[in-house]
Structures are given as C-alpha cells and as structure tokens.
Nucleic acid binder design. Structure first.
Lengths: 221, 221
DNA sequence: TTGTGTTTTTAGACAAGTCTAAAAAAAAGT
DNA sequence: ACTTTTTTTTAGACTTGTCTAAAAACACAA
C-alpha cells in the first residue's frame, strides 16, 4: 500500500472535493486557492502525485484524479467524517468545533483503527454535517441532502448545516450576525437582479449576498 | 502556548522516559539509540530544544529537561496512554496492537479533545500496560507496579505486561518462543554468575539472558 | 493575428530534519 | 603523561514542501 505524506493527502482530498463542484480538470489556481498556497507549490506537488499515478496531469491542462487517487481521497474523507461523528456523538463536541480536530485525525494511518471506529459508532451513514460517510470499499450509499443557501427556493424551511469554506474569519462573521450551525431559517425572498437572499431566523430578518449564500450549506426540512 | 513539531515531541518524550531510568544528564548517544537516529541529528535537535527553553544542554555534557520540557513530555505521555486505553477499552484492540497507533494519536493537538477523552474513559488512572496516566495538571497519582523481569525474585508469579523497547524484531522473537502479553509466568531460578533467569510458562521452561530480562516488563501477582 | 493580460511553470532559495565524514573533546589504558 | 578509543560536535549535503521572481504558455479581444 502506497504511503502518503499529510501534505499529499491534503492535496488529494482538495482535488476530490473540487471535482465534485467543477466539471472537467482542476486548474492549478483553483487548487492553490483551496489549499491557501501558491500556484508554484501546487505545480510541484502535481508533478509528484502524477509520478505516483494518483492523478493525471499535463502542463497547463490542470489535473484529475486517477481511480487510485480517488480511492485514497475517499479513504481520507471516510476517516475525517468518522472522526467527526465520534467527536460529536461520543465526546459531545458541537458541530462547529470538530472540523479542525478531524483535519488532524484523518491522517492517522491504520485501516484496522478506521474500521473498528466505524463499528464502534454503529456504521453511521452520515456525519454530523449531513455529509455521507464512504464505506470500507469507498462507496457512498447515501446521497447528501445538503444544498447551498443560494439554491434554496422561496418559502423553504431549513437548518444551517455548515459552511463550504470554513475559514475562521468567515465563521466569525457568521457568529457576529447570530447565525450558528443548527439554526432554523425560513427563506423569505430572493432578489432577482443580484441574487441576494432574504431569510428569517430567530424572528429577525437577515439578507445575504449571493457570494455569501454560496458558502452556506443547509438541509431543507 | 508553544507549538511543537512531532519530531520535537518525540525527542522530549524519549528524554523524559530515559530520565526515569538514568540518573543525571542524558547523553547524546543514549538518545540517538532510543530514537534510532544518528548522534549528529540529536546534537542538532538538542540545540533547538535548548533554544526554546525545553531543556538544558551544554556541549559534551548531555541534556536534562526543564520544567517546561517535562510538562510537555507529560502531556504527550498523557495523550499516548489515554489513546491506548481508548483503543483497548472501546475498540477492543489487544495490548500488543495499540502502541504504534497511539504513537500517531499522541501528536493530535487539542487540549479539549484530550480532556474530553479522559472523561469519556472515566478518568482512568492506569493504561492497558499498567502504566500510570498523568492527569490534566501533569501529576501522576499512581505508582506503576511494573518491574523488569531482571528484577524479579525466585518464586515470584507475574504477568507479562510489555517490553521496554518495542522493536518489531524483538516482539517477533518473543512471539516465536510463545511469550505474549498477558502470559502468566513463574520465576524458577536466577543464575548468579551471568544473571540468566529461568521461568516457567504454559508448562514449559524457558531461560533468558540478563539482557533480554531487562527488556521484559512484568506485573507481580 | 497580434497585442495584452492572465495563468502556469521554471529557477533558485529557504527551513526542518536527517545523513555521512571528518574534526574536536572527553575518557580510558598503559 | 601520552596514546588510543569512544563520544560528541561540526561541516556540508540531501529531501520535502514551501516561497518569490521571472519566464513561458495560453486566452481573448480588437
């Protein structure tokens, strides 16, 4: 079994998640953004991962994971979501506290551990953010019921499930306006000319730009 | 709070455990042995850790942890032993399977996680190998009841609790002769001229050199 | 199709942690 | 006290993953 560094694993995971939203190859800049690093560093890493047959890469053409790369990415995502479930279900952490710790735990190398943890948790199909947990074989049984706030329809009731890009700064902004994970919202209106969305929560009305609405994940009720 | 790399943490832990057996300063070579690395690498690291006030070090004089260094070492040992307890108690791993995984888990950075894990496990005082688990404040309440086989007296009955230096090669040797963690032994005889020790286990008699007996930890019954 | 701007790659540098080989210091033997 | 041996340190090199600055490739508009 190919042994990967934490950095290599993080790249694979980032490419995998970007691939779910972006059609076709992933560009160097998109990856650099996601990894908050420089494009030149990304190029170096892509060469290395390509060498190891984890992805396909050709100069100036972006990259795409091979089956081998995908299965590695899914294994990491599996670990991340199992650990998040453990932290919330067994250690009573809040949804918003577990991401950073799971980012560390996802790199622990031991298939045996992962599988026993899975069993200990009762083979959960979804993590605390409503995202599906890949099985031992990498298959995802469950289709995520998360959508982005930007995709919500008027009159919809939903619960805040998470944010796409969990930068501390953004989380702090949400905290300031009183929006937390688990908050229930009502979608009141969508302005057609700029895509702004108006919601009601805890009795007050709040308006978000389309940019922000694309960062907030909700689960319709 | 000072942020340490995995490598720095491993050095601190090694120095701490060596200090428990060795009186006075720890020599560069002893550390190199323990870390299975070269003396020159150790020297480099000692300079760095000294710079950070984690230990005292003077050329050719070996090193000793400062209070700051000790408290870091104890925090890592705490995490290691709590995770081992988790793996054995909650995920039903065997004593002999948990060390390597705990070596990884001990580097997870989150005091909150450690303390909640402690609570989840019911604030255990000893780990699965009979070693005491330092508390949140770094204090050790419990005195280990482990001794080395080399220190056993004739007629003593005991259980194999672990090995001092868990090199795979040594573990394989023990496996080959049928000695496992949890095996009950009777100390039959000690030869005074070379320190060899004769034990009985599962009905058969086995003889160990003093060198080997110093590597095997037992708990007297 | 040619110029302009953006994206991506190259080239060279740096920090961390390791190594080898050689020098320096300490310890031990006679 | 003078060798010899052992221990420890220095010096220089290598790897991984990152960076900056500059060059190359690409994309698109006039």
């Amino acid at each position: 079994m190919l042994r990967l560094t934490q950095s290599e694993e993080n790249y694979l995971k980032a490419i995998f998640t970007l691939s779910q939203d972006i059609e076709g190859a992933i560009s160097t800049n998109d990856l650099a953004d996601k990894m908050t690093t420089k494009a030149s560093s990304v190029t170096d890493m892509l060469k290395k991962l390509c060498e190891k047959d984890l992805l396909e890469y050709q100069k100036y053409q972006g990259c795409a994971l091979t089956n081998l790369g995908s299965s590695h990415a899914l294994a990491i995502i599996r670990k991340h979501r199992l650990w998040e479930t453990f932290l919330v279900d067994k250690l009573s952490f809040g949804w918003d506290e577990v991401h950073e710790i799971a980012e560390q735990l996802e790199h622990i190398q031991s298939t045996e551990l992962t599988d026993r943890l899975d069993e200990f948790l009762g083979f959960p199909k979804v993590d605390p953010h409503g995202e599906p947990i890949p099985g031992k074989d990498g298959r995802i049984e469950f289709v995520s019921n998360r959508i982005l706030l930007s995709e919500a329809t008027i009159g919809m009731k939903a619960i805040i499930m998470g944010v796409e890009d969990d930068q501390t700064e953004f989380l702090q902004y949400l905290n300031k306006i009183g929006l937390h994970l688990g908050t229930q919202i009502d979608v009141m209106d969508k302005l057609s000319f700029d895509g702004s969305i108006m919601i009601q929560m805890d009795g007050k009305q709040v308006q978000f730009s389309i940019t922000i609405a694309k960062q907030i994940a909700i689960k319709p009720l």
